[in-house]
Amino acid sequence: MSLTLTPNFSEPGKRYFRAFSPGDDFYEMLIDAHRDLDDEKSAMLNAQLILLLANHIGDLSVLREALARAREGAV
């Protein structure tokens, strides 16, 4: 499996009438999760989130590709 780079958000059983809705739903959840946290706590949340998601994905080839893409944009 390779890293999915096209829009891929959805929720089982939920019907979306607009293409932008599931991605916006996710983004709002993400920002809400950080509400009222200081920068240090936010960074801790992000780190844990990455570890949780990485374990969920599991496939090291996918994670390797994601890490490479993320590093490209950061440096």
Partner: peptide, 22 residues
């Protein structure tokens, strides 16, 4: 943090369709 994620989305958007959709 919100600004960081916004800027990360804009950076990813240059290369990836999922980033543009966000």
């Amino acid at each position: 943090t919100s600004r960081l994620f916004r800027n990360a989305v804009l950076t990813l958007a240059e290369h990836h369709a999922f980033g543009r959709a966000l």
